[in-house]
Design a binder for these strands. Structure first.
Lengths: 280, 280
DNA sequence: TTTGTATTTTTCATATTGTGAATTCGGATT
DNA sequence: AATCCGAATTCACAATATGAAAAATACAAA
């Protein structure tokens, strides 16, 4: 009877000291637990390790590492392959970790990242995914500037003439790419890339430098810089971008603007539990 | 010289004391770590809990729970929603847990097969294995349809009430089957098979036609068609399935849908170097 | 077979460090 | 303003995590 009020009293806003101070006195962490989690993380990075390998490379005593592993094994977070005498991440770790997704909506996670991106660059930040061969804009954070690129959420746009679209195309293998492009490349402005070869050269450049540029290819007077966001399987599932008038998004500004975009994409990738596996 | 020999010396069979005694002296676990992991698991079960809720329901002191959470937060295993002052499972827990899948290349190999299966049938494709007497869903490729069966990866489900589960059960010999079923057959819907004899008849039918059908046995309104995937030793180690609403997955559609499922299972079996040896 | 070597478990003495009661703190409620 | 509530912190104490070393085991070599 000390429990059934789970949420019924609806503590929408919590009382108590707010923990926004970030880290100030991060001295109230549990050291042994932290070290144990270090082992856990380390094991996840290179699975199938022997006890001695782990303890050697982590500089910890075998005894300690052993006890950590046995303890985690007891909860299924770690598994021991009795045949090969090697340690692995356990199935329960997968089950527990997967519950993270129940709460994670890409759009929610992206909002703070996009706000920071907008503040860092001063330009409107956008988030988009692929939807039936087109780019669907999901969300945006508008710049404070008076002249601004406006791209209402819900808009659909051709992939080959969009920063986010090209960032996503650049991550596709030859097979999927071909299917996306078999409808031909519609022209929107004089600068739209309509030639398949030219597009593939651009995609190669995008892969090499890590970001794409829409240089008035969809709307005259508007440039856009985008980078891909990856899911857990290492597939590009979204793109994040900044867009603005050519007057501010100049060739000189590319370097200054692209860095925060790439950084934002990386941050968002981490925030949704994604990782970059392939580098095509 | 303490690192680069990772596996090169090929200790196929390890030395040292073999740990097959199972648990005998399970007293060399770390108590505080075990308690901390208990908090971690508990949080994953009901996300979005306040500190006091956790400590109350677990019967632990708030201080301890707090420190555990802060420590795990430091590694991203747990997240704190500053707005609502609630604790959640973190992105890194997901990332680490997802690495469980890397242990075999099964998931990687399965992805293209599943994508093709989804496109051929129009329904969500799933991959699952047996884990401790239950079906663990590893991966899925979602359909584009608006009404879709949603079965998040990481979910555990009873074998006798799952398409993949029954496909795996159908490949077991009498001995293993008995052990799996000695816990009884829990009922989930009016259509769940709860009678041992009826189940064995269904398993015989599954073996005969090569695929299993979950006909609203776990969730009303949802049907599922599955087939087994075999490893090199000819043992069924996974199942591949499509699942969808009863409105689309009708009795008439069974033939049209089962063919691609069987084909996908065969393709995946080949892709992982497996083969079908026994036909029990 | 016997001996040697590598690796994993266990033991044990030690002090590091995790623990909960009590306190402080800051917002929410009145 | 005053009061209440739950989150964050402190502190004194002993529970318990720790690593060195020894034991146990399997494989390799002699």
């Amino acid at each position: 009877m000390d429990s059934q009020d789970n949420g019924s009293r609806s503590p929408r806003k919590a009382r108590g000291r707010p923990r926004d101070w970030e880290d100030k006195t991060a001295q109230n962490t549990i050291k042994s637990l932290d070290r144990a989690m270090e082992v856990f993380e380390f094991l996840s990075e290179r699975q199938g390790m022997a006890l001695s390998t782990i303890s050697d490379e982590m500089g910890q005593s075998p005894s300690t590492v052993y006890r950590v592993l046995v303890t985690l094994e007891g909860r299924g977070l770690v598994e021991f392959d009795a045949e090969e005498q090697l340690w692995h991440i356990g199935a329960r770790a997968f089950t527990i970790g997967a519950r993270f997704l129940r709460r994670t909506s890409l759009v929610d996670r992206a909002r703070p990242v996009m706000r920071r991106l907008m503040e860092a660059t001063g330009e409107t930040a956008n988030l988009g995914v692929e939807k039936e061969g087109q780019v669907l804009f999901l969300s945006q954070v508008e710049t404070h500037a008076n002249i601004r690129a406006f791209f209402p959420p819900g808009t659909l746009s051709a992939m080959h003439a969009s920063g986010i679209g090209k960032a996503l195309l650049a991550q596709m293998d030859e097979d999927r790419l071909s299917r996306r492009l078999e409808g031909g490349l519609q022209s929107f402005t004089p600068r739209t890339i309509t030639d398949r070869i030219a597009l593939q050269e651009d995609l190669a450049r995008i892969r090499a430098r890590g970001y794409s540029v829409d240089d008035e290819e969809r709307n005259l007077g508007m440039r856009c810089i985008a980078a891909p966001v990856f899911d857990a399987a290492g597939e590009a599932l979204a793109g994040i971008s900044v867009s603005g008038p050519t007057s501010r998004v100049t060739a000189d500004a590319l370097d200054r603007l692209s860095r925060p975009v790439i950084e934002a994409a990386r941050t968002l990738t981490e925030a949704i539990g994604g990782q970059v596996t392939r580098q095509p």
